[in-house]
């Protein structure tokens, strides 16, 4: 029986935890879990991580970048598996993806920017000018914005738009370019949480939103290409098996990335905006919200 600590930032990550537990069960890894959820409070994470260390767990499953950082900063050698961390290199969790080099590895939550560009092209073939809205204080947002910018090249004209704090969203009515055909939202907590206020303004100018956060699709985004959190959790369970059962060294277990991002679509939004979703995409979609 192993003792596994789970450190979670918000309930939005429940699926990852569920997938992780399910994965361990399927691999017959017997474990009891010490579960801590900071309920959105990032400042609580170091304390909670410390508590897990004091419980002397065999492994910590850290959900989200701040949770991974908190677990990584512990002065113990407890192995840490993280997901969904967008870019573990830039936030100094690992040295490189193939050979992490320390006590942390896991699954990136990233979906390849080229795939996202292709998805937008397929969903909205007439888009010429695409807006991109991101939060400049969020390191993951900056990375995805940078990746996306490179992937777009000459496929669309890109109008970039930034916020520095959540209240900036209130003023989007003044800053949102009127000539964009669609708005792309890279990952980033502030943008994702306050999505309704962004959609409020884009609805007024009939601009569809492509999000990077699955729950935003239910709330009114036209679509998203996302990594399934439950699958990421399951993949982490495999890595846990390698560490706990096979005795592999964490530093040599590569960080994984999803190879099967899922398509989520919102038919109600499409109808409101008078957009016809291509049948090919509807057929491929994991979920189409009505």
């Amino acid at each position: 029986m192993f003792h596994i600590g789970i450190l979670q930032l918000t309930q939005n990550l429940d699926d990852a935890v569920r997938g992780f537990k399910q994965g361990l069960k399927e691999l017959s890894v017997e474990a009891d879990f010490h579960y801590f959820n900071a309920d959105g409070n990032i400042n609580e994470l170091p304390k909670l991580a410390q508590e897990l260390a004091e419980l002397n767990v065999d492994l910590i499953f850290a959900c989200s970048t701040p949770a991974a950082k908190a677990a990584g900063n512990l002065v113990t050698n407890i192995p840490v598996l993280f997901t969904p961390v967008f870019d573990p290199i830039s936030v100094n969790l690992v040295d490189n993806l193939e050979f992490p080099g320390g006590k942390l590895t896991g699954m990136s939550g990233m979906v390849n920017a080229d795939d996202k560009v292709k998805f937008i092209q397929e969903l909205l073939p007439n888009v010429k000018r695409l807006g991109m809205l991101y939060h400049t204080e969020d390191s993951n947002s900056l990375i995805e914005a940078s990746n996306f910018r490179k992937a777009v090249t000459d496929k669309f004209a890109l109008s970039e738009l930034t916020i520095t704090c959540k209240e900036d969203i209130s003023l989007l009515t003044e800053t949102l370019p009127q000539d964009i055909d669609a708005l792309f939202l890279p990952i980033g907590r502030i943008i994702e949480e306050n999505f309704a206020s962004i959609a409020y303004y884009t609805d007024a100018i009939d601009v569809p939103i492509i999000t990077s956060h699955a729950p935003n699709v239910v709330l009114g985004s036209l679509g998203a290409l996302v990594a399934n959190h439950a699958m990421l959790g399951k993949a982490c369970a495999k890595q846990a098996h390698q560490i706990l059962i096979e005795g592999k060294d964490v530093k040599a277990i590569p960080v994984g990335i999803t190879d099967k991002p899922e398509i989520l679509l919102n038919a109600f939004v499409a109808d409101n905006l008078g957009i016809e979703i291509p049948a090919s995409l509807l057929a491929k979609a994991t979920e189409v919200y009505e």
Partner: peptide, 18 residues
């Protein structure tokens, strides 16, 4: 400080012709 998460930010209310 202890607000676990936000769900929206203030927006301009819809004007009479919207």
């Amino acid at each position: 400080e202890r607000e676990p998460r936000f769900f929206s930010q203030a927006v301009k209310e819809a004007s009479v012709d919207s």
